[in-house]
Design a protein around this nucleic acid. Sequence first.
RNA 1: GCCCCUGUAGUUCAACGGAUAGAAUGGAAGUUUCCUAAACUUUAGAUAGCAGUUCGAUUCUGCUCGGGGGUACCA
Length: 603
Amino acid sequence: MIDLLIKLSVKKALSSLLSIEIEEKDILISPTKKEFIGDFTLVVFPFVKQAKLSPEVLANKIGEFVLEDLKAENNEKVISGFNVIKGFLNFEVSTKYWIDFIDKFKTKYTYGYKPIRDEKPVVVEYSSPNTNKPLHLGHIRNNLLGWSVAEILKANGFAVRKVNLINDRGIHICKSMIAWQLFGDGETPELAGIKGDHLVGKYYVLFDKHYKKEVEEMVTGGIDKETAEKTAPILLKAQELLRKWEAKDKDTISLWEKMNGWVYKGFDETYYRMGVDFDKVYYESNTYLLGKDIVKDGLVKDVLYKREDGSVWCNLTNDGLDEKLLQRADGTSVYMTQDLGTAVLRHNDFESDKLLYVVGNEQNYHFNVLKIILQKLGYAWAENIFHLSYGMVELPEGKMKSREGTVVDADDLIEEMINTAQQQTMEHGKIDNFSSEEAEKLYYMLAMGALKYFILKVDPSKNMTFNPKDSIDFNGNTGPFIQYTHARIRSILRKAQEEKDINIDTLSLDSSLELNQKELEVVRLLYAFPNVVELAGQTFSPALIANYVYDLAKSFNAFYQDTSILREENDSIVRLRVALSSFVGNTIKSSMELLGIKVPERM
RNA sequence: GCCCCUGUAGUUCAACGGAUAGAAUGGAAGUUUCCUAAACUUUAGAUAGCAGUUCGAUUCUGCUCGGGGGUACCA
C-alpha cells in the first residue's frame, strides 16, 4: 500500500531530520485534489510549529527525504517526484507502479475484499415488521440497509448472520383479526385475488375506520373524547381477542395463525423481489415472555428495584437518562423486557459478541437504555451492541401517514419502477435482439438498481426525501447510470476478444508506458476502493460505497469519451486500456453487489 | 418543559479540521462519418444567523432561529 509507505517514510523523515516523533495516525495522507499535480498529499501544517520551519521549507525537506527513502527501499522509483504548494506536499507515484497495480488486479473479482477471518459472527437484525399491514417505503430503507451492511461486513472479513424478528402478536394484529371477523365474510387472499399481507392490511384500515366512527358517535352522544377513545366497542373487542390469545383460546389462535400465514406468504414475495434474505427468523410470539428471568436476576443484583405497587424499574438518572419501567404492576412485561431477553437469546444462539440492530432513529433512546441495562447486569458483550439508526423517509409533502393514505407501498413501488424501466428501455431501442425473458430480466434489474441506489446513496443517519419523480429518473447520479457504464465496459471487452483476440486473463502489460490524465484519475479511484470498503464496514454505511461507485463510473465515462480504446494504434496501449476497463468493470460489479444491485452485460 | 438528531445551490445528495465547498437534477449553450448519446463538455447558482477555539471551521464549542424524533406501566 503506497499511501502507507509514504506515511511511514514521513514519520521517519520527521524523526531523523528534525527529531520530531509523530504517531502514525497523526500523519494525514489524502488523495491529491484534481486541480493539482500529484497522487497523494501530505498536509504539513500540523508539524510546522515543532519543526520551527516555514511550511514550504518543511514540505520540501520531507519531500526530498521520502523520494530517496522510498527509492532505496526496493531499488525502484515508487515516487517519481513531488511538488509543494503552500503547506501541501504532493507526491507523484511512478507510472510503473500504477501499471503493475492494474496488471495485478485487472481480473481479480475479490479486489478490495478481505479474507474471511474465523471470528464469532456479527448478528444483524433488520426488517422486523409488524404483521398487520404490508411493507412500505420505510421498511424498504430498513431492508436495503440491513442487507447491504451485512454484505459489507462480509467483505470486511466478518462472519455475519442476518436475523429478522417478526412482531406477530399484540393489539395490532388483533385489530385486523376483529375487523375480519366482523366484516370479512370469509374473505381470503385467493378469493379476493390480492396478496395476503395486503388483505390483512385492508382489515387493519377497516378497523381504524369503524373505530373512528364509533368514537365520533360516542362523542356526539355526550361522552367525552378520552373515554370514548378508550371504550369504543370495536376496540374493546380487539382487546378481548388479545386476552383470548394470551389465554391460548383455540379459535383465536387458529384465526391468528391463518391471518399471519397470509401475511408471511406476502412478505416472502416482497422480500424475494427486494432480494433480501435471513439466516434465522424469530417470532415475537415465541420471545415475548423472555426477559422475566432477567428482571428477577436484576432485582437480586440490586440493579433493578421494585416500587410499592409491584412495578419494577431501573434507575438510569446517573447515566443522564430517566427511570425505565421493566415490569408493570400487574407483572406483565414491556417491550424493553422482551428486548433484553432476545438480546441474551441471540448472544447464546450464535455465540456472538456483536449485535447490530437496524432500527429507525425514533428508537435511539430505547437502544441506549437497552445497552446500559445489559451492561449494568454484567453482560460484557453488551458493549458491542450497535444500533444502526437510520432516518425517516419522507415524501415531498411531508411525513407518510397511513391515515391519510400517503404511505408508499413496497409492492406498488417496485411494480411502478419496473414499468418505468421497461418504458425507458423501449424508448432507447437498444435491446431489439433480446428475448422477452431477457428483456424482463433487464427491466427488473434496472428497476431495482434505480430504487436501491436511490435509497442507499443517502447517509443512513439522515432523514431523506423520497420524491417519486426523482426516483424513477435513470439519468445522472442513479443506479442505471452505473449499470450502463458496466454494460459499455462489457461491450468493449467482448469486442477486444472478438476483434483483436485480446484475452483479458492472459494479456501482459508493458509497464514502461505513460498514463494520460483521465487514466490516472481512474486508477487513483480504483486504488482507493479497499479503503472505501473498510470505512463503509467501520461506519456501517452503504452510502460510502454508493458514492464511490458513482465517482468511479463517472470518471470512467470521462476517460471513455475522449480516449480511444480499441481504435488506438499502439497494441500495448490497447492492452493497457482494455485491462484498465476490465478492472473498472469488476470493481463496479463488486461495489454494486455490496448494495444488492445486479449489473447487466448489455442494456 | 426536558433530552437527542438535524439545517449546504430552486430541488435531491457529497465533502477523516485542510487547498478555489463537489455532484446530480432543473435553467442556458454545445458534442454523434468514431468502441452503446441511459453518455460527454461548457455555464450560472449554496454552508440559516451571531460569537468562540485553531495556522486553517460546512465539520469542534456556545447562543439564536428553523425542521424532525423521544419523553417512566405503547411498540
